[in-house]
């Protein structure tokens, strides 16, 4: 990593593009999920697409984690240490999973090989498979049309008046335009804020001010607030609730809506509350 960053021609630029690209991917995934949540596009039995999408977010965060662990800076070493201890908290099989994750009882050279295999083979393969499943479900039930029947009729009128919006060239051209703008933004950010090498990993000293990458800030905060392994268990429950959100919505939140005779959207209230807490914890850690 030090060679790519500090010696190879254009190595630092290439690494910066990789890092900024990863950041953009997570930002856009979060924005996409926010849109799906706000418009309720996971409803009407579109569970499959949501569940595959939520798992895709998890795998992408896994790519982020393994990515910055492979740099083998201080933040990498201590992130692996904390994660391996979180894994140990899993009931019954925790110790075995930790051994599998670290390729030993402690971080060693084989740990990096294992993380590398995860980063370049296993997680990308998982993302490709889940991506196909995600798109399959989207195609199976069609795109979600927000709004009521009147809006849908209006949409039909526009199509009748102006003709069908074709994939090619209409959609393809707009995609290419967005792609070019994104490439420009990533290149500019890579030139202005290039990736650098931090302090090398030191197994003997944890730096006084250590934080994970920004997308893990809320979980980092949660681990500070909740004592013992309870924080780890709560994190697991949040992940399960997030993946199964459409089912929770249909069988819990919408039942509560009926109590209020349809004048409430409990899922929106609960979701916004979670998002607010998520943002609040992220900001506290960012400025703390």
């Amino acid at each position: 990593m030090a060679f790519i960053t500090e010696h190879e021609r254009y190595g630092q630029f290439l690494r910066s593009v990789h890092q900024w690209g990863a950041t953009f991917m997570i930002v856009f995934l979060l924005l996409h999920m926010l849109r799906v949540f706000v418009t309720g596009a996971y409803r009407a039995y579109r569970w499959g697409a949501w569940i595959a999408g939520a798992c895709l977010l998890g795998l992408t965060l896994g790519m982020g984690f393994t990515g910055y662990s492979l740099v083998y800076e201080q933040i990498s070493y201590w992130a692996i240490t904390v994660t391996s201890n979180i894994i140990t908290s899993v009931p019954l099989v925790g110790g075995m999973l930790k051994h599998l994750f670290l390729a030993g009882d402690e971080i060693n050279t084989a740990t990096l090989s294992r993380l590398y295999a995860l980063h370049v083979q296993i997680l990308p393969a998982g993302i490709a498979c889940l991506g196909i499943i995600h798109l399959f479900f989207v195609r199976l039930l069609g795109m979600y049309m927000p709004g009521n029947q009147k809006d849908r009729d209006e949409e039909k009128n526009i199509t009748a008046r102006e003709g069908v919006y074709h994939f090619f060239p209409d959609h393809a051209l707009s995609e290419i335009a967005v792609f070019l703008y994104l490439v420009l933004a990533i290149c500019l950010l890579s030139l202005l804020f290039p990736a650098k090498m931090g302090s090398p990993a030191d197994p003997l000293i944890t730096p006084e001010h250590i934080k994970p990458e920004w997308y893990f800030y809320p979980f980092f905060r949660l681990l500070k607030l909740v004592p013992g392994t309870a924080g780890v268990i709560i994190m697991g429950l949040i992940a399960v609730a997030f993946v199964l959100w459409p089912i929770l919505d249909q069988y819990v939140f919408q039942k509560v809506d009926k109590v209020f005779k349809g004048r409430m959207e409990v899922s929106l209230l609960v979701g916004f509350l979670v998002i607010l807490v998520y943002l609040w914890w992220a900001v506290v850690e960012a400025i703390g």
């Binding site: 240490t81 904390v82 391996s84 201890n85 000293i205 944890t206």
Partner: peptide
């Protein structure tokens, strides 16, 4: 004893 970092 929480998650394995080094204390000061």
């Amino acid at each position: 004893s929480h998650l394995g970092c080094t204390v000061f």
